[in-house]
Amino acid sequence: MSTVTRTVPALGDLGLGWRREIAGVIADLRPGFCEVIAESVPIRRTRAVPDPLLTDLRDRGVPLVPHGVALSLGGVDELEPDRVHRLTACAEAFGAPLVSEHIAFVRAGGIEAGHLLPVPRTREALDVLVRNITRMQDALPVPLAVENIAAFLRWPEDEYSEGQFLAELLERTGALLVLDVANVYANARNRGLDPLGELARLPVDRIAYSHVAGGSEGGGRYHDTHTDPVNRGVLELVTALRERAEVPFMLERDGRYPPAAELFDELDAIAGAAGCAPITDDARKVWS
């Protein structure tokens, strides 16, 4: 199978989500990049003020990617200026190669959902996303990448498949894609579909990087928890995606952080599935 050559900002093969709780461990790794939740970065006098450990990573040449969770690109309301400014300020403070957010809405009519909610795959919703993504792109000094989400809810009026929806969205906006293979796995499992088959239908030519995360079964559903180890099914998607395109991968962990040795094992498992070099060798010597 031929490999797609990426024409997006260069990142290392394997990164992880930066969290303050594991910042000391990350400092001893050799990550290809780190993604940072933009809403966790203080803004003072209109400037983003990164944690000193983040500044150290930046100064070591580790690319830092601001990742928004509250912009609500899929919402019909206009983007809130303060949230737009936060992402642009983080991009400037990090010297970021790109910024990422979600294909989702989190508020409507001023009411906060407290969760990433899926947009209907309709022409009207697509127009809203295009408007908001274009607005964000105009404000940013770097490219914007948008992420597919995991969701239990499906809208009955969908007019597109997920692959068709993503392809048209990327074509109309020129945006990049953060392809979360853990979300592909979760959605397929909960809908009784084949995860590998679902992945095969998604566009790969504009992927900036890919999220990898763990989940667990509960209440007859598969939950994308980010607090459990990455399972074999998700790792199979990592391998399948890497066979189609030269994609960087990134581990997401949010809470219930394991001991350093277990975190290293998880990163090594992703590296093995992706066929790339491990980033843990130096850190294992420090944390052994």
Rank of each mutant, 00 (worst) to 15 (best):
H115V: 15
L117F: 04
L117W: 07
P118T: 06
V119P: 12
P120V: 00
R121T: 01
R121F: 14
R121E: 01
T122C: 02
R123T: 12
E124T: 04
L126R: 15
D127E: 09
V130M: 13
V130D: 14
N132P: 12
I133G: 12
I133N: 08
I133K: 07
T134K: 01
Q137A: 02
Q137P: 04
V142P: 09
V142T: 05
L144G: 07
N148S: 02
I149D: 03
A150D: 11
A151G: 02
F152C: 05
L153A: 14
E157K: 10
D158V: 11
D158N: 15
E162T: 01
G163S: 05
Q164K: 08
Q164W: 00
L169E: 03
L169M: 02
L170T: 01
L170V: 02
E171G: 06
E171N: 09
T173N: 13
V178D: 10
L179K: 11
L179V: 07
D180I: 06
A182Q: 11
N183K: 03
N183C: 06
N183A: 13
Y185H: 15
Y185W: 15
N190P: 06
N190T: 05
R191V: 00
G192C: 12
L193T: 03
D194P: 11
L196S: 08
L199H: 06
L199D: 06
